[in-house]
């Protein structure tokens, strides 16, 4: 029997989807991946595996996806264009599909200057939108870049990221439209703390009818502390945390800040559930994967549909 993307099944059945993120270890150890997978299993529909996020060398996303798959989890292969040219990317797309991976998230990737290999040559042979289109053409037309035919096409549910909080704001929706036209079938957004701005963005998305063409999963990152909130706001590319949220975290004694962060995350999920055009949430609990089941349960998203 052919394996199918669980995420695609959940979304196309009309369920509010839940995905989570798993960062691979900085070592050749499958243990941490299995452990994180074990924590998430049953509580989410699919698990994204980051691809050397922030330009830091980690165990490969493709390898970690295979490990998760063997644990019975539907993995989402994150693939950045920073480190590999079109030859390597297309080769890995074929390999991923052959290994039974059924979801891909196409990204440009954080610039190498943020990571631990600052002297690396950034490849950026193609960009994220070109990667989306490449996967779509490989899957639907059985052709690689340049038109040569494949002996067998890859089977992948195609995803992209979108940051509603980056500038220029008015252009973000047009760019989302480009990603949809390129072939994106699901979108996972940057983490949401500024709900009014997110509402404005999803309103614009709805006005263009884009929520009918693509599944949108809102990004959630539970804050561990006021310090983390301040750091992310100032230092992490593409992330904006409003003063109100930072103040709310600060008002709570440090020992209770994690609890407050979880509360904010749940409130955000509740708000997203009410928003027309939002089809799920993507929980990125950075090195805090063990908290995901609690969040999913408290947000009344457990148990997950079994399809």
């Amino acid at each position: 029997m052919k394996r199918e993307s669980n995420l695609k099944k959940v979304l196309s059945a009309g369920h509010f989807a839940v995905t989570a993120e798993c960062g691979p270890p900085k070592g050749a150890d499958e243990g941490p991946i299995k452990k994180k997978g074990g924590m998430l299993k049953g509580y989410v529909d699919s698990v994204n595996v980051t691809d050397n996020q922030t330009g830091v060398v980690r165990l490969s996303s493709l390898a970690a996806c295979v490990i998760l798959k063997e644990e019975g989890i539907d993995p989402v292969l994150q693939m950045v264009t920073r480190d590999r040219n079109r030859i390597a990317l297309q080769s890995d797309i074929l390999g991923a599909s052959a290994l039974g991976i059924r979801n891909i998230l196409c990204l440009s990737g954080d610039h190498q200057s943020f990571g631990n290999q600052k002297g690396a040559k950034g490849v950026f042979d193609i960009d994220s939108i070109q990667l989306i289109h490449t996967v779509k053409t490989m899957r639907d037309e059985g052709k690689i870049i340049g038109g040569e035919a494949l002996t067998a096409p890859p089977q992948l549910f195609i995803g992209a990221a979108e940051n509603p909080f980056a500038d220029p704001f008015s252009y973000r929706v047009l760019r989302l439209g480009k990603k949809i036209r390129a072939g994106a079938e699901f979108i996972q957004t940057q983490c949401i703390y500024d709900i009014p701005r997110f509402k404005e963005w999803i309103g614009m998305v709805r006005d263009e009818g884009m929520d009918q063409k693509v599944y949108i999963l809102g990004g959630i990152t539970p804050l561990k502390s006021a310090k983390m909130a301040e750091y992310m706001n100032g230092h992490v590319a593409g992330i904006t945390i409003p003063e109100g949220i930072i103040d709310r975290m600060k008002k709570v004694p440090p020992k209770d800040q994690r609890e407050e962060g979880i509360k904010i995350a749940i409130e955000t999920i509740e708000a997203l559930k009410e928003m027309k055009g939002i089809h799920g949430v993507h929980i990125m609990a950075i090195e805090w994967e063990e908290i995901v089941p609690q969040i999913v349960e408290k947000a009344n998203l457990y148990p997950r549909p079994s399809l």
Binding site: R82, S108, D110, H111, S113, G122, F124, D127, S128, I129, Q130, A161, E162, N163, A166, D167, P168, Y171, R175, K178, Q190, A237, G238, T240
Partner: peptide, 15 residues
Amino acid sequence: AKGLFNGPCGGSKDK
């Protein structure tokens, strides 16, 4: 910085 042809990336903030 990323030589994007279908930009901007998600890291553009305040121009």
